[in-house]
Design a protein around this nucleic acid. Structure first.
Lengths: 350, 350
DNA sequence: ATGATAAATGTAATCGATTACATGAGAGAT
DNA sequence: ATCTCTCATGTAATCGATTACATTTATCAT
């Protein structure tokens, strides 16, 4: 019961014009007379014609799609970014493909192949941990001008990117804890090679130095943004003789893993230890205690990156990589319940 | 600096064969002599040839992609399902498009257009709330055989679907609470028109009846799976004179919203009120208290649906809709901390 | 040796839209 | 009345792979 496919030729016949005219009505309507344009459109409507993407893509040498490369689709952090991206591309006529870096690694797929197979016209990469080999393949095949990084980026690369002001976020977190009276502040980092891990740690150290806060090696605990690593960090902290009074986590998930484990072991948050997260995912507001955290505007990260990519694609080789400096998105401190004044902890009142 | 595109013709020339032979080497290698096959493949390797998808799609009248329609990309519940889906399609050579129903509604897009524009060969629909109008369009355009529902489904439709055993899940939840000694059990539902809302509510009522539990109208609280609706439900419960001792929520998110609000208002969970969720998203284990909930195997939902769709696509019009009965995925009760024996609550010991 | 059959490969039409180039009609200048 | 020039539209080549059909070659029976 397949429908009879309606071709541009059928529309042309119906409208009494050539296929060229129909095609122009679609892509450059201003070239046509008011009258013919009307005739053609009414023919299109009455036949229910829809352009065949494959044919168009073949002829125009475009793919009509872009790819979003996500480090881990299972992480709720990315959902709002994706929503922002698909919102923008929903208005263009580009479709959005989504792939998980994890799947790739296991399946031995090369990202550059999406370009080489002309499956995509561009890519938004949410994963800064692409191998150098893959980056080299991008350069080699001249697809660099059609890649935008968002959230994460490749360290030292000049590729266009959209990012939160992570350093500032870290400083806000530390300062907030400082203002609450905390001096012994620990930090659970992200994965070792991650750019975000780096800038957030640096931001924290900078603010710390500025405030003249003490520092110990054991206060920097290696994590990887995951719930599980939050749990592991909690174990470390529980085993310390002299525990920090506050902990700044590199992600909200880490904070959840941490808090949940601490509380299970009888350590109260924020009673005994204050915790600040990073990201402000939806759930943070409804955690117990509601999480004090640094908000990243994930939706904006998505839409800005999407628009930037659209520019790159439309510019083509014309402008090339003039978007060298990253687009920065402001972050802000969201004060909730998980970090409290140290006075409450010790019971000392002024 | 665009790369010279290598066409099948170039490979043919290099290998000293016709384009037909090269094409066969790729799609039906068994038709060729060992020798020519070797020659062709080595020519492919040395030229770095990659097939042009647009050309292939045009000729074969396929799209080379499938669509996953998600009710709300921002909901972490779907991430694992998506991961499962992209895992399966990563092995086929179909790409995965993802679209959010919300965007569609606002942009006034029609889902069926993806098919009509030959952008997709099939679709996995995670949204059971498609309008009748849209369903009609599917039938009208003969694309019904290429649609698989997952998680949710269209009530009364015979379209292939993969779903959790929601009724059983609800029964398990109620029974668990019953066994803990609870008799006054409330339920926060999903959105009114949702199929899951319906079957979960029915399952709950059935188990309740079987156990001879009392029932009051105010114990059925309307929600919509969201954190916010959990908060609203909590407000309702707080305002009741005679509060239920346990609450079964239609989703984990609802449970979080509920618990967080109850605790903020000084009602302890599970001390004063026990709560059971539904879904078992990653975070549930790390909530405070760790959430007792019904686990849906989201990854399996994704992979099963993906494989089912692959079958449908390969079968073509041949088998048509023989997958009439839904694929059921088992759920199980995961006991954690949010639901406790009622004895603890009242302080009465046996 | 010859014809029949099967297996491997080649030839060329085809998928459907786009667009460079060609054509024709009308406006305006002389 | 004739010549230009412009603007709207038509003609047909093209994008690159697939595949029905044609042709060649090899295999085998008689």
């Amino acid at each position: 019961m397949a429908q009879k496919p309606i071709r541009i030729r059928d529309v042309a016949k119906r409208a009494g014009v050539s296929t060229a005219t129909v095609s122009r009505a679609l892509s450059n309507p201003e070239l046509l007379t008011e009258a013919t344009r009307e005739t053609v459109f009414s023919a299109i409507r009455s036949t229910g014609y829809r352009v065949n993407r494959a044919a168009r893509n073949l002829r125009t040498r475009q793919a009509g799609a872009i790819l979003v490369l996500v480090p881990n689709l299972g992480n709720p952090f990315f959902s709002q970014i994706l929503a922002g991206i698909s919102e923008v591309f929903g208005e263009s006529d580009l479709s959005v493909l989504i792939a998980d870096t994890k799947d790739h690694a296991t399946a031995g797929k090369r990202v550059v192949d999406y370009f080489l197979d002309s499956q995509i016209d561009g890519m938004i990469c949410l994963d800064g941990a692409l191998s150098d080999e893959e980056i080299r393949q991008f350069e080699e095949n001249g697809v660099n001008g059609r890649i935008v990084f968002a959230c994460e980026w490749k360290h030292g690369s000049s590729q266009p990117s959209v990012r939160s002001d992570n350093g500032q976020g870290a400083r806000l977190a530390v300062r907030h804890l400082y203002e609450l009276g905390h001096r012994k502040i620990a930090h659970v980092t992200g994965p070792q090679e991650n750019v975000l891990t780096h800038v957030r740690r640096e931001g924290m150290l900078a603010e710390r130095a500025e405030l003249g806060l003490p520092m110990r090696d054991e206060w920097i605990i290696r994590g990887d943004f995951s719930l599980e690593s939050g749990r592991a960090a909690a174990e470390k902290i529980l085993s310390m003789e002299d525990r920090p009074t506050a902990i700044f986590c590199a992600s909200d998930q880490v904070a959840f893993g941490l808090i949940s484990t601490l509380k299970t072991r009888g350590v109260e948050v924020p009673g005994d230890i204050s915790v600040v997260g990073f990201d402000d995912i939806e759930l943070s507001e409804f955690y117990v205690p509601a999480l004090t955290t640094i908000r990243q505007d994930r939706h904006a990260l998505g839409t800005r990156a999407a628009r930037l990519l659209l520019e790159c694609i439309h510019a083509g080789d014309a402008i090339d990589n003039k978007h060298s400096e990253p687009v920065m998105i402001d972050v802000k401190l969201v004060v909730r319940q998980s970090a409290a004044s140290i006075l409450q902890e010790t019971g000392i009142q002024a």
